[in-house]
Design a protein around this nucleic acid. Sequence first.
DNA 1: ATCTAATTGAAATTCAAAAACAATGATCGG
DNA 2: CCGATCATTGTTTTTGAATTTCAATTAGAT
Lengths: 145, 145
Amino acid sequence: MKRPQDVFANYLAEKNLKMTPQRRMILDTLLKQNDHLSSEDLYYHVKKRDKSIGQATVYRTLKLLTDSGLIDSLDFADGVTRYEMTYGTDHHDHLICEQCGKNIEILDSTIENRQEALAKEHGFTLLRHKMYLYGLCEKCRNKKI
Amino acid sequence: MKRPQDVFANYLAEKNLKMTPQRRMILDTLLKQNDHLSSEDLYYHVKKRDKSIGQATVYRTLKLLTDSGLIDSLDFADGVTRYEMTYGTDHHDHLICEQCGKNIEILDSTIENRQEALAKEHGFTLLRHKMYLYGLCEKCRNKKI
DNA sequence: ATCTAATTGAAATTCAAAAACAATGATCGG
DNA sequence: CCGATCATTGTTTTTGAATTTCAATTAGAT
């Protein structure tokens, strides 16, 4: 298993793009944070390390990292795009509490298999999918009564 | 089965909101179009019937219709929120071609059941879910070779 | 009919994301 | 080493969907 840094470097080389200190640093920061970060969040952390970095660079790098397959964008339906590492980790989906925002990562092979099968039935090659389950967690459900 | 118009009227009454000609007309237009419309699309159609209608009213009404459970918002990952009627129709998810935008509605009871089960396993009450399968349709896959 | 709170359209505002731009930096062949 | 080329940067501006503000209007209960 190659290091994420190397995967990124390879991706850039392949596309005739360049590895820069900024890109290196942004990936590095992301690897250390690793949560469900928004671009804004990441910008904040990156800025702590290097005051001079620009917000656009963070946006641009996140797009590159997404294209390289290292990270994936998430949509929790709150108007902000978040990102998470996907390289080297098992794929998973998300179960989100609409009340408190609690977020549980879930994985179900039955569902994954059926997704593949469904796509195939319609002549599609499945590239990726997004599945979000929205509900109320135990605590919030009880509060509501 | 009540008419959508009545469902909406009831919803508004329940919330102490008012039925207005604009709201009536927007719902009516939506019922006739029925596709995967964006707010912009709908605004265009509505405007043809009544020049004087404001864009904000369309946004506002779409929100109300969503809250009333008549329609649902869709995210095809192209930056525009689309809407579709869900009242009176079976729930379904979407299989989207990333190349040409072709959009197939899918339904799989195995997946639906597992979703419920997964939520329950984590103590959640499932309210709704979104599942999008992104891939390449047969035509576009062949074109790519 | 009256009254009050909801609603309207127009305009202004928000906000994340993208683009424009001039300056900087890397990489290459010669 | 040099200069040409092209990607990259940070700043600033722009975009575009969506929301808010506001004064004027209107629905609908009493």
